[in-house]
Design a protein around this nucleic acid. Structure first.
Lengths: 194, 194
DNA sequence: GTCTATAGCTGGATAGAC
DNA sequence: GTCTATCCAGCTATAGAC
């Protein structure tokens, strides 16, 4: 498993995109940073847009591999399941700040066609949707429209991730960790005692 | 109060920026859309960046004029105050979708220097901060760290705004309206009964 | 203040040798 | 697969007439 030039190009692209934005990063600067020639970039990626798309898909795929429900988790109470997934996702965000920042930029712009973004999002959100629906049927999560809830929940997770990224002193602060999750859980949980 | 060419340029810039992004909108296309000559744009704005900044500041200012606490509001219970401000902001977002989309793009990118963004944000968030702090001192709002709460609350409002913008069939749907606000309020309120 | 014309540069993408 | 060299479109910004 060697690091190919293609991988180097993706790494450099992520670094430069997240720092300066997609549009103000030239393909030349990506190639230079990756230590490869200009033409090599266009050998591996049909166009700049294709590079952006490949990077986006790759990150979303990586995240979907991290946040999964296993047998052990499914046996726990719902709040623990949600908390677990929340923590896994936040930890991933803290370890991959550039990835989250880049995805946020792509998601809130028209750089990539809507169809590509929707496809990547659907895949990522299936767990979230499953948990909310389950919780609603068990009367543990409030019965608001599912599309609205998915939207809000996802936004809260991303916001928390971005918060810890830009305030990294709080990453290991239990108060902040706990508070951030509780803000998320309190919004949707029916039993708010304790 | 006539519509000056400067105003037309700002209007066209907002339209094109929110649709295609700042970087992929040329100054030439803005001038053309506004029905003025290319050079006129640079007479009114020193550079493209200065145009972006002027637009951003103008929108943030406009929003801060809309969301204010008046005498009448201050006499109400806290939840009503919050609900009122929430509704005012969402209504503004629905009426000015392009403005919200543009602001979101600017906020999640490095197009404008951080100092400019922070200044505009501070001004906008002062009411939110005041309400949360007041609520905390009255034990009506949960006592989590204020910086985290401001971040999350602002994100929830923006997310709701964007949700109604992209699902405009729900704009007048009381269920969605009520649910969106309750998700916001439940997260931070201490008394969750009823 | 507004226009036309254009300078000067940058960036995405290609061609062809190795 | 990787490189160098280069084309050409499109962009920001300026100059100067009106």
């Amino acid at each position: 498993m060697t690091i190919t030039k293609r991988d180097k190009l993706l790494d450099s692209a992520l670094l430069l995109f997240s720092d300066n934005g997609v549009h103000s990063t030239s393909t030349a600067s990506i190639a230079k940073h990756a230590g490869v020639a200009n033409g090599t970039l266009f050998h591996h990626f049909e166009s700049k847009l294709a590079l952006v798309e490949a990077l986006y898909i790759s990150i979303k795929h990586q995240l979907s591999q991290v946040a999964v429900l296993d047998e052990q988790l499914l046996a726990m109470p719902l709040k623990e399941q949600v908390s677990n997934l929340w923590n896994i996702t936040i930890d991933w965000a803290i370890k991959n700040p550039k990835a989250l920042i880049f995805c946020q930029q792509v998601a809130t712009s028209n750089i990539l066609p809507l169809s590509v973004r929707l496809k990547a999002m659907k895949q990522e959100l299936s767990i979230l949707e499953a948990m909310i629906t389950l919780g609603q049927s068990q009367h543990e999560i409030i019965d608001f429209p599912i599309d609205l809830m998915i939207d809000q929940c996802q936004a809260q997770i991303i916001t928390s991730g971005l918060f810890f990224i830009s305030n990294d002193a709080y990453v290991n602060d239990e108060t902040y960790r706990h508070s951030a999750f509780e803000l998320f859980w309190r919004a949707i949980a029916i039993d708010n005692s304790h």
